[in-house]
Amino acid sequence: MSGWLKKHIIALKDLERREIELIFDAAQSFKEISQREVKKTPALRGKTVINLFFENSTRTRVSFELAAKRLSADVLNFSSSTSSLAKGESIIDIIKNLESYHPDIFVIRIGSSASLRTLTQYTKASVINAGDGKNEHPTQALLDMFTVKKARGTVENLKILIVGDILHSRVARSNIFGFQKFSSQVRVCGPSTLIPYEFDKLGVEIFYDLDKAIEDVDVIIMLRVQRERQALSFFPSLREYVDKFSLSPERLKRAKKDCIVMHPGPINWDVEISSSLKEQLHPLILRQVENGLAVRMAVLYLVGTRKK
């Protein structure tokens, strides 16, 4: 018995420290399974997992799909992206339709922030958040934290720095809530236009100068620059962005010696991170992907086998 009780995993805001630790423990055992010759366990045999993606995603969907398959669940992928209001209306209809197949778990990616609590009303199945608008991306943060735990032995009392477009980042929000539960301090750094309103009230420290922000940190999370959002004039040019917020070898030297650098991917080399750091940093970033699979197996397993 895992001792897991939650039906849904919607936000790191709602998870308790103890629950995050349970996920880490489960992820550790699933990581080992993926290193075996036969990479499969019957843990979710007979269960149905539906990946319901209303927003484009390849990496997260593939990771969830493989996770469910390695747990022997039946997996259905459903992707759909249509325009705004009609979209919303059909979202509920689509869920009600798929509900007819009696799924056990819905993995949902959706463009509207904080919308999953509403959607849980339309299904008896568990819902796992694979990214809801700008709100949260819990499994990304869990895999980031798990990666830190593996690399540094702990996620407690660390200094975490998140760099880039905080305003539009569900990855940033989930990581902030997650790391704060372990008494780690979170700093955010980015163009002032991309730091949300009153964000300091969240208990994070705000920096506009990466050289200062980076001092003494244990972990750096570089966020992807959404090139399409640049058009909305949050900052004038990539050139200026790179000058102020790109991670260069010189800047990295100001962090702690054993500082680790992560990126949720896909990376724009020489935008977020200088390509001269590729050899040094890429291995760990790829390990995030590997850990992502284990973490997603863990959440599917815990939710799928929870005591009802």
Partner: peptide, 15 residues
Amino acid sequence: RESFISSKYGIGSIP
């Protein structure tokens, strides 16, 4: 309304 709450949940906000 743009507020701490809108920032916390990443909800598009109106100042």
